[in-house]
Simulated assay, not measured.
Amino acid sequence: MNKLPQSLRVLLFILLPFCLTAQDRPFEAEIRAFEQADLTSPPPQNAIVFTGSSSIRLWENLSTYFPHKKILQRGFGGSELSQVLLYADRIIVPYHPKQVVVYAGENDIATGKQTGKQTFDRFVALFEHVRQKLPKATFTFISIKPSPSRRQYFPENDVANQLIKQYLGKQKNTQFVDIRPVMLGPNKQPVPALFKPDSLHMLPAGYERWATVLGPYLK
């Protein structure tokens, strides 16, 4: 059987979230909590929305790393790119942000069911959806990080990162932020001291390195 052309694969990724029932929507409770919080405390206008997986969700005191920026933290669960797309119209688009910062893709590959190329296709679906809804917003992607507990997926992570970098390089008002170099030691291996005991989620030391690299990219 011939492979579907990329344009059709992207279209399927875009349409799929809208065909799901409520029972098929993971992390729905977290998304509703965001919406409730917005009613209680209106979010800032013209802000920078950070979204994606647990690397964003667990970034404690995110705003304090960028004290002169208006930050809105909307990371959830252990989300995949397809799930960020699923909820984009609820946790990204309504805020009309000036910039969208995404960290996702690592969990897609770590399921063992998505290759780097397939993860890239998911990324394109998300990007095109956000760009259509927010044509003036800067779109920033943080590269998939080298988590020690997921060494077996490093080759596919590299494929996804390279394809996303190349793709964004051809788009207007986009940024690919490569945080991998500051997370590696002289031996080119992940620095253990940056990670929690699970060798997956980061300690403040890891986020400090992220902030140093990411700061100049924020609007």
Rank of each mutant, 00 (worst) to 15 (best):
P44M: 08
N46H: 02
I48D: 06
T51E: 07
T51M: 05
T51F: 07
S53L: 01
S54A: 12
S54V: 10
S55F: 09
I56S: 02
I56L: 05
R57T: 06
R57M: 04
R57S: 08
R57H: 08
L58F: 11
L62E: 10
S63M: 11
T64S: 09
Y65I: 15
P67D: 05
P67A: 12
P67F: 11
H68P: 08
H68I: 11
K69A: 05
K69M: 13
I71Q: 11
R74Y: 15
F76Y: 07
F76K: 09
F76N: 01
G77C: 00
G78Q: 02
E80R: 03
E80C: 03
E80P: 07
L81D: 08
L81W: 02
L81P: 05
L81Q: 10
Q83R: 01
Q83G: 01
V84I: 09
L85V: 09
L86A: 03
Y87C: 10
Y87P: 09
A88P: 07
D89K: 03
D89I: 04
I91N: 09
I92R: 14
V93R: 12
V93C: 08
P94H: 12
H96D: 04
P97T: 00
Q99L: 00
V102W: 08
V102I: 10
V102C: 07
Y103R: 01
A104V: 05
G105Y: 00
G105T: 06
E106S: 10
N107P: 09
N107A: 06
N107H: 15
I109H: 15
A110T: 12
A110K: 13
T111Q: 11
G112V: 13
G112Y: 13
K113L: 14
K113E: 12
Q114E: 14
Q114F: 01
K117W: 11
Q118K: 11
T119A: 15
D121L: 08
R122M: 11
R122H: 09
R122E: 04
V124Q: 03
V124Y: 07
F127V: 05
H129F: 09
V130R: 00
V130P: 00
Q132T: 12
L134S: 06
L134V: 01
L134T: 15
L134D: 05
K136S: 15
A137S: 15
T140A: 04
F141M: 03
I142G: 00
S143A: 07
K145W: 04
P146Q: 14
S147C: 02
P148F: 02
S149E: 12
R150F: 08
R151V: 13
R151N: 03
R151Q: 12
Q152V: 10
Y153A: 13
Y153R: 08
F154C: 02
P155M: 06
P155L: 11
P155D: 04
P155W: 14
E156C: 07
E156Y: 11
N157R: 15
V159H: 02
A160G: 06
N161V: 01
N161T: 05
N161W: 00
Q162P: 04
L163E: 05
L163W: 06
I164M: 15
K165Q: 15
K165V: 04
K165G: 15
Q166A: 14
Y167G: 09
Y167M: 05
L168G: 13
G169H: 03
Q171L: 06
Q171I: 03
Q171E: 14
N173Y: 00
T174S: 04
Q175K: 13
V177P: 04
V177Y: 01
V177A: 00
V177C: 06
D178I: 03
D178M: 01
D178R: 09
I179P: 12
I179V: 14
R180A: 06
P181H: 11
P181C: 14
